[in-house]
């Protein structure tokens, strides 16, 4: 007999007790794998950051050159601060680390690419924006593939469509328009959809908790 008062010889367990133990293992393993990571807020944040940068650089001549560097750095800082607070209590898994690395690598890649190109004197809007859109597509498709989540894979594919379209449009304004449309769908739209799903999932969890109480 162990400290819980359970007899641990296999001969003393009946079929019901065995079934209960197996059900406990399965439910706890499922519970452990269930994640409550919601990143809708982050897609929305970056969508708003892009819109602010576009608006600032297009319509406010004062400090135009600072529009993108300032908004992007601020978005990075906000992402780090908010993510740390939200993810503090969630357990680490290989999958969550891998997903984080995908997005960090994309972010660093864009940073390493964008700043030198912008200030090198070799900037060309079509190629630049197509590269950025392609990188965003890669991150979404990789992340969606890991999660087996077709919605996010479609979002990634839309960024790739934007990248291809950007290569063929005649003017810089068209390039900006394509990027704006992609941001509205893939950041603002996708982010809003995720946040609605999050609040619905949390409401369901609360209802489940009340039922079991």
């Amino acid at each position: 007999m162990d400290v819980d008062g359970n007899t641990v010889g296999g001969s003393a367990m009946n079929e019901r007790e065995i079934g209960e133990r197996i059900a406990l293992i399965e439910s706890m393993m499922r519970e452990g794998r269930r994640r409550t990571e919601y990143w809708g807020w982050n897609f929305l944040l970056w969508g708003v950051a892009y819109l602010i940068a576009i608006g600032w650089s297009s319509y406010l001549p004062a400090g135009r050159a600072l529009a993108w560097p300032v908004t992007m750095v601020l978005a990075v800082v906000l992402t780090i601060v908010i993510a740390r607070r939200r993810m503090r209590r969630e357990p680490k898994t290989e999958r969550s680390r891998a997903l984080g690395m995908i997005w960090m690598a994309m972010g660093w890649g864009i940073f390493v690419f964008a700043f030198p190109v912008t200030y090198s004197g070799h900037f060309e809007a079509h190629a630049f924006m197509a590269a950025i859109e392609a990188m965003l597509g890669i991150a979404h498709v990789a992340s969606g593939s890991m999660l087996r989540w077709s919605t996010q894979i479609v979002v990634g594919a839309l960024w790739w469509v934007a990248a291809i379209a950007t290569c063929f449009v005649p003017s810089g304004n068209d390039v900006a328009f394509i990027f704006l449309a992609a941001v509205l769908v893939c950041n603002i739209g996708f982010g809003t959809y995720l946040m609605i799903r999050e609040s619905r999932d949390k409401a369901l969890e609360r209802a489940r908790a009340v039922q079991h109480a």
Partner: peptide, 18 residues
């Protein structure tokens, strides 16, 4: 075999650390 310990091990089996 203890139910709580079984639950804990099952939970921890799916994560790196918690």
């Amino acid at each position: 075999h203890g139910k709580m310990r079984l639950a804990l091990l099952s939970l921890l089996s799916g994560v790196d650390e918690a």
